[in-house]
Simulated scan of single mutants.
Amino acid sequence: MQIPATPSKYDRLIAAAQAEVPPVTLVVHPCDETSLRGAMEAAAAGLIVPILVGPEARIRAVAAQCGLDLGGTEIVDAPHSHAAAAQAVAMIRAGRGELLMKGSLHTDELMREVTDKQTGLRTARRISHVFVMDVPGHEETLFITDAAINIFPDLDDKRDIVQNAIDLWTAILRTKPRVAILSAVETVTTKIPSTLDAAALCKMAERGQITGGLLDGPLAFDNAIDPEAARIKGIDSEVAGHAQILVVPDLEAGNMLAKNLTFLTHADAAGLVLGARVPIILTSRADPVRARMASCAAAALYAAACRRTIKVAAE
């Protein structure tokens, strides 16, 4: 008798999202097979209800060429990628959707519309990116932030980056996360500015400027995720050795860390942009199907949590 495989971290994430009402998702310029197939597969799995925004004739041509049935999927015609991004953002502002999903346009093109001061989706919170990592052999889901948006964040930016990640973890996993503020060392030194930021962020959490998570830092990567490394260094905290959210000093460090895990341990990396009015699903042509589905699942769970918060506030 074959013993069924244990569901992966992503499998559990997707199953949880399928139990929620799928959010209306504006898919911006899905004009290649990868982006269009990703949206339609997520719809077929019950994760999202897509509205495709872009040149209709081109979208239908891609669907026909790739054997994709668009069925009754709504398409909002826009002549090119820039117009599609602007139209999708305008529709979010008008309450037509709960999520944005990047299609085959450049990330910068979409984010330029999102961050426009007059017509975009800015909030008081700094916009940041979170990788939701499924690392083989590691028991828990790992978040890495920010490895895609903020190049050299200052302390105020990092406060928002941390809070965005905590809010996402709380929304989709419904526990209080352990947050490691990473640096090269685990001691505070003026020679490494990121250690000063780490210490300040931990104090900010103590004073209620960051809420919902347990913070510790500075921590090096090894003693953030490995209990034995933390024990050898004599670090005794609830976070050290058991971190769930890894906050990197800058984009370069985060990008290298996420890609090292992806290519050396064959980890999957789903991704979301947070801090705007709605979550934004960022997918890459190199993403496997599981990662694209997990990105949609994480965003759908976040949208469902927002719905519950609004309902409670209204009551």
Score class of each variant (00 low, 15 high):
residue 161 I to T: 13
residue 162 V to R: 00
residue 162 V to S: 00
residue 163 Q to Y: 03
residue 163 Q to C: 04
residue 164 N to E: 05
residue 165 A to P: 10
residue 165 A to V: 04
residue 166 I to H: 05
residue 168 L to T: 10
residue 169 W to C: 04
residue 170 T to I: 14
residue 172 I to D: 00
residue 174 R to C: 14
residue 174 R to L: 12
residue 175 T to E: 15
residue 175 T to P: 07
residue 175 T to K: 15
residue 177 P to L: 09
residue 178 R to Q: 10
residue 178 R to N: 11
residue 179 V to F: 04
residue 179 V to H: 01
residue 179 V to G: 02
residue 181 I to A: 02
residue 181 I to W: 09
residue 183 S to I: 10
residue 184 A to L: 14
residue 185 V to D: 10
residue 186 E to C: 13
residue 186 E to W: 06
residue 187 T to P: 00
residue 189 T to M: 12
residue 190 T to W: 10
residue 191 K to N: 13
residue 192 I to W: 06
residue 192 I to F: 09
residue 192 I to A: 12
residue 193 P to Y: 00
residue 194 S to Q: 08
residue 195 T to G: 07
residue 195 T to Y: 02
residue 196 L to K: 05
residue 197 D to V: 06
residue 198 A to I: 05
residue 199 A to R: 13
residue 199 A to P: 06
residue 200 A to H: 01
residue 202 C to P: 03
residue 202 C to N: 07
residue 203 K to Y: 14
residue 203 K to A: 14
residue 204 M to P: 01
residue 204 M to F: 11
residue 205 A to P: 03
residue 205 A to S: 14
residue 206 E to A: 15
residue 208 G to L: 13
residue 210 I to V: 08
residue 211 T to M: 08
residue 211 T to S: 07
residue 211 T to F: 09
residue 212 G to E: 03
residue 212 G to L: 04
residue 212 G to M: 09
residue 213 G to V: 06
residue 214 L to W: 14
residue 215 L to K: 02
residue 216 D to L: 09
residue 217 G to W: 02
residue 220 A to D: 10
residue 220 A to T: 11
residue 220 A to N: 14
residue 222 D to A: 09
residue 225 I to Q: 00
residue 226 D to E: 14
residue 226 D to F: 08
residue 227 P to H: 12
residue 227 P to I: 08
residue 227 P to A: 01
residue 227 P to Y: 05
residue 227 P to F: 07
residue 228 E to G: 10
residue 228 E to K: 13
residue 229 A to R: 10
residue 229 A to G: 02
residue 230 A to C: 06
residue 231 R to I: 11
residue 232 I to V: 15
residue 232 I to M: 11
residue 233 K to Q: 07
residue 233 K to D: 05
residue 234 G to S: 07
residue 235 I to L: 13
residue 235 I to C: 03
residue 235 I to M: 04
residue 239 V to S: 02
residue 240 A to V: 07
residue 240 A to M: 05
residue 240 A to F: 05
residue 240 A to S: 13
residue 242 H to N: 15
residue 243 A to R: 01
residue 244 Q to G: 05
residue 246 L to F: 01
residue 248 V to G: 01
residue 249 P to A: 11
residue 249 P to K: 13
residue 249 P to V: 08
residue 249 P to Q: 11
residue 250 D to Q: 15
residue 252 E to F: 02
residue 253 A to V: 13
residue 254 G to I: 01
residue 254 G to M: 06
residue 256 M to Y: 14
residue 256 M to T: 14
residue 256 M to I: 13
residue 257 L to R: 05
residue 258 A to D: 03
residue 258 A to R: 04
residue 259 K to Q: 13
residue 259 K to W: 07
